[in-house]
Amino acid sequence: MTTFFNTILVGISSGSIYALMSLSLVLVWRSTRVVNFAAAGQAVLSTYLGYEAMSRLHNYWLSLPIAVIAGALISAIVESFVMRPLAKRSKGSPVESIAPVIATLGILGLIRGIAGLVWGNTFLQYTSPLSSKGFMIGHTTIPFSPLNAAIVIGAAIVLAFFAAIFRFTRLGLALRAASFQPEISRLSGIRVDRIRTIGWAFAGAAGALAGALVTPTTYLSPNSLDLLLVSGFVAAVIGGLESLIGAVVGGLVLGVGFAFILQYIGSEVTFSAAFIILIIVLFIRPQGIFGRGGSREA
C-alpha cells in the first residue's frame, strides 16, 4: 500500500512537469493552431540562460525568473520572426498545415546547434538548493522531496495565473477571441498579431519553467528536454489540446501512469509507453478528455 501511494506521489511530481510542457504546447496551439515542436529547444535555451545566471549570481531562486523571462522572450522572437511570416506566406497553400511543423523542427535544430556551439554537448549540472531527499513521515522516507514540492507548487501557480488571465482579463478575452475568430477579432479592434505573440510568450514562459524545474533532477544538454516534449505532447493530446485544465490533467495522468509503469514494469518501457498511450487515446477518445467532439483536424 505504501508503494502504491509513493508511486502516486512520484507521478504527481513528474506529472507537474509534463503539465507545464503540455500547457506550453496548448497555449501555442490555441493562439496559432501550431504544435510547437521547438518548445523543447526553447526550454533548453532558457534553461541554459538560467544556468548562466546561476553561475554568476549563485542563486537558484534568482536564476529561475530569469530563465522564465528569457523563455518568454525567445518564444516571442520565434513567433514574430519565423512563424508569423510563414503563416502569411503559406496561407491557402497545400502545405499550410505541414509548413509550420517543419519550421518548428528547424528552430529546434537551430537552437540545439547553437546551444551545442556555446555550451558544448556535455552534461551540465543546474542545481537547486532544494534537497532531493524525500520528506520524513515518522520513520519512513517518502519519495517526495522539497524539490518535488517546489515543482508541484510552481506548476500550480502557473496554471492558476494562466487560468485567471484567460478568465478575468481583457487580455485573456482577446487571446481567446483571436484564436477562435481571427478575422472578426481584427475587425473588432484586437491586434491579432500582437495577441498571438503574447500567447507564444506565455507558452515560452511555461516551457521555460518546466525546463528550469526539471533540470535540477537530471542534467542539462542540448537535447536533454526532447523527451519532455514528447511527454508534453502526449499529455496535451490526452487533455484535448484545446483546454488548459485538460493539459494539466493530461500531464498528471501521464505522470502517474509513467510512475506505475516505472514501478511495476521497468524503466526501459517508458519511451514506448508514451507512444502506446498516445495511440490508445487517439483511437478511443481522439478529442481528448476535455476536448469537444469533432475530428482531429488541424
Binding site: V35, S97, L278, L282, R296, A298
Partner: peptide
C-alpha cells in the same frame, strides 16, 4: 484519422 500536427506528434512519439 489524424492531420498535420497530430500526425506529426504521433509519429514523433
Amino acid at each position: 484519422r489524424l492531420r498535420g500536427p497530430y500526425l506529426a506528434g504521433t509519429t514523433l512519439a
